[in-house]
């Protein structure tokens, strides 16, 4: 039972794996740029969750290195979100839409 509870890895790993797989799917299969962005956020969260989970369960007592890595992931995610938003804005300005199927042309 331990394995399946909050003190075991299993639950976190299952959650992280689903987050990641869902993220990959969204990033690939969404035709809207925001969908892709959502996918990327999901994947990043999966990674952060894994970091923290391994750091908590696997490492020595009181070690917060996993969490620290998680903090970095959040920082990266924030930066990525800002840049992605700017890019979306630029794409929108030139194509008046952010549908990736429509904005395939490399026009100015």
């Amino acid at each position: 039972m331990v394995e399946l509870g909050p003190d075991g890895l299993t639950g976190y790993l299952v959650a992280a794996a689903v987050l990641f797989v869902a993220g990959v799917f969204a990033a690939v299969a969404r035709r809207n740029a925001i969908g892709v962005l959502i996918g990327i956020e999901l994947m990043l969260n999966a990674a952060a969750l894994q970091f923290t989970a391994y750091g908590r369960i696997h490492a020595a007592t009181g070690d917060v290195q996993g969490q620290t890595a998680g903090v970095f992931v959040v920082v990266v995610a924030a930066a990525e979100a800002v840049v992605a938003l700017a890019l979306l804005f630029a794409v929108y300005r030139s194509a008046h839409d952010i549908d990736l199927e429509k904005t395939r042309e490399l026009h100015s």
Binding site: V28, A29, V36, L100
Partner: peptide, 13 residues
């Protein structure tokens, strides 16, 4: 290189 972001991501993944 058809400009389909999804394909790129899939290949990368």
């Amino acid at each position: 290189h058809a400009g389909r972001l999804g394909v790129y991501v899939a290949v990368a993944a």
